Amino acid sequence: MRLALDPWQAAWQALGARPADALHAELLGRYGETHRAYHTQQHLAECLSLFDGVRHLVGRPAEVEIALWFHDAIYDVHRHDNEARSADWARQALLGAKAPAEVAARVAALVMATRHSVAPATADEGLLVDVDLAVLGATPARFAEYEAQIRAEYAHVPAQVFAEKRGAILAGFLARPAIYACGPLRHRFEAAARRNLSAALATCRP
């Protein structure tokens, strides 16, 4: 299983660092929190599995892998600083594991890239963001499941308000010249993502 301890330890060893013994279990516990429906161990496993097939495309694969573990480590739908708090956790964990400061800084920047608010600053950030967004280009069945999972996480939001805000997010992705930064992932997911997003957007409009 991709969430097993061995690949986790291998990534840290590649960075010359040793995390706290309880960190792996603590992160899995976070992704298993009951208020989550999409940002769960399922999403983390999907990201890590996809990354395994494209890790040769990044310059620092161990850093990207650790960033994936932390990118949704803190998730509270009532807050707007989840990525910042997750990035800070990653930075402190790496420093505590005796990783070089520049490694900790780069991993924190990778986590922050998953805000999806600005274009990725590096190729490694671009690929990590693409992996995080791969669900947009999933099969129609998986995309429908994803949309239902997002709605479940925001079940407290009235339907009309949710439709308006969700529609704005979907339209924002569609407005991009390209959703995916990395050529191989763009080739694999772009067309399907645009079909999925267009179909979902139509349900958000009156």
Rank of each mutant, 00 (worst) to 15 (best):
M1Y: 02
A4S: 14
D6K: 12
A10V: 06
W12H: 06
Q13M: 03
A14G: 12
L15N: 12
L15E: 13
G16V: 00
R18T: 04
R18G: 01
A20D: 14
D21N: 06
A22R: 11
A22F: 14
L23V: 15
L23Q: 15
H24F: 04
H24C: 05
G29I: 14
R30F: 08
E33I: 00
T34C: 06
T34F: 09
A37D: 03
Y38N: 05
Q42P: 07
H43M: 04
L44W: 08
A45I: 06
E46C: 00
C47K: 04
C47M: 10
F51D: 02
D52I: 09
D52N: 07
V54S: 10
R55C: 15
L57H: 04
L57C: 06
G59T: 02
P61H: 06
A62I: 00
E63I: 01
E63S: 00
A67V: 05
L68P: 02
L68F: 04
H71L: 06
I74Q: 09
I74C: 07
I74R: 08
H78G: 10
R79K: 12
D81C: 07
E83K: 07
D88K: 08
D88C: 00
R91K: 15
R91H: 15
Q92E: 14
G96M: 08
A97Y: 05
A97V: 00
K98C: 07
E102M: 02
V103H: 10
V103F: 00
V103I: 11
V103Q: 13
A104S: 12
A104Y: 05
A104D: 11
L110W: 03
M112Q: 14
A113T: 13
A113G: 02
T114E: 05
T114Y: 05
S117V: 15
A119Y: 10
E125H: 15
V129I: 13
V129E: 11
V131G: 04
A134Y: 14
L136N: 05
G137Y: 07
T139P: 00
E145H: 11
Y146V: 12
A148D: 01
A148N: 06
Q149D: 13
Q149T: 09
R151Q: 11
H156E: 12
P158W: 03
Q160K: 08
F162H: 13
G167R: 09
L170I: 11
G172Y: 11
L174C: 05
R176A: 12
A178K: 04
Y180C: 01
A181T: 15
G183D: 11
P184F: 10
L185Y: 02
H187Y: 07
F189E: 02
E190A: 06
E190F: 05
A193W: 04
A193R: 03
A199F: 09
L201C: 03
L201D: 04
A202N: 00
C204A: 08
C204F: 14
